[in-house]
Simulated scan of single mutants.
Amino acid sequence: MKILLIKLGGSILNHLHESFFSSLRDLQNDGYRLIFVHGGGPDIDWMLEKMEIASEFHRGLRKTTPEVLNVVELVLSGKTNRRLVSMLQRHGFRAIGLHGSDAHLLEGKYIDQHGLGEVGEITSVNCKMITDILQLDLIPVLTPLALSQSGTTLNVNADMAAGAIAKAMNAESCIFVTDVKGVLRENRLVDFLTIEAAEQLITDQVIIGGMIPKVKTALAVVQEGIGKVRIVSGKEPFFSGGRWIGTTFSGKAGVQA
């Protein structure tokens, strides 16, 4: 079974182009099974502000008090997940929304309960459940929430959740959908980068601005043991005729994009 893990950030969700869904159809026609993980940062920020709850980040992770966690769960499960599932279904895909903390689908542990609160990282994935869903020709759409050993819900960074699930499911690739099609050098798309080459482009200030955190996230997931990680655009085709359009990252030179 050829599996692709596709991570969608909350900021790109409302800007997906029709060609994005055409690429998904091409992937399915090419024999790929799709798994989605999504974030919901903008919606969470909006709801926290509306409810006058302070929002704070530390080392890129949202500090999650029990009060903040209630909002995170409400938004991810009740709004963002439903929106993505509905969008996929409107475009002819059979999608099903799944909450990572349900039925021990995703299990995790605290990262730093004192400093970050209810924030965790994934320690195990119920691969059988996900595989069974895929074999029903359904597309699982997961929230990045995990269940701790004590039975509490943990807020997991969606990028890292995507990497953990991709690794556990032995996915062919982990794909990060953004508002750009990949790394550009002299206005030309860079198709493939090793970890070392990407870090050098950051040092040389070829990769700058908002692309830096995108690339660093991709590299972090590669270092977790994923063979290939891709940055692609949700605003234009990213897969067509068996060809990828984006930047592929790998820990090994010579790996095909």
Rank of each mutant, 00 (worst) to 15 (best):
F238L: 08
N14G: 12
G234R: 08
G115P: 11
G31W: 06
E186Y: 14
A95Y: 01
G234H: 00
I133N: 10
E118W: 14
T248I: 12
F57W: 14
V71N: 12
L184G: 13
L34N: 00
K109T: 15
R33C: 11
R83T: 15
I175R: 04
F249A: 03
V177A: 02
H58C: 14
K167D: 09
S101V: 02
M1R: 14
N29S: 08
R25Y: 01
T153R: 11
L61C: 08
I133V: 01
M1W: 07
Y110R: 13
D45K: 13
L154Y: 01
N126I: 01
V119T: 09
I195W: 11
G151F: 10
S240D: 12
E67M: 00
H91L: 05
K63D: 08
G151W: 11
V180P: 07
V71M: 14
F93T: 09
M87D: 14
D159V: 02
G10Y: 03
T153A: 09
S240K: 12
L142S: 04
L8M: 10
S19V: 01
E186N: 15
L105H: 14
Y110G: 11
A168S: 00
I207H: 01
S150T: 02
A164E: 08
L134I: 03
A171W: 04
T143N: 06
Q200P: 04
S173Y: 07
P237C: 11
E18Q: 15
V221T: 10
C174E: 05
V222A: 05
T80V: 07
I207S: 03
A103G: 10
E73C: 14
D112S: 03
G234K: 08
F57G: 13
G117H: 03
G10D: 02
H17D: 15
L145H: 00
V221K: 12
T64G: 09
S101R: 05
F21N: 03
A171N: 00
V222S: 07
H104Y: 15
V222G: 04
G97R: 04
V221C: 12
L98A: 04
I226R: 01
F20E: 02
G210A: 04
M87W: 07
P66K: 12
V229D: 03
H104K: 15
L4I: 04
M47H: 08
L61G: 10
L189N: 06
N126C: 01
A253D: 15
R82Y: 02
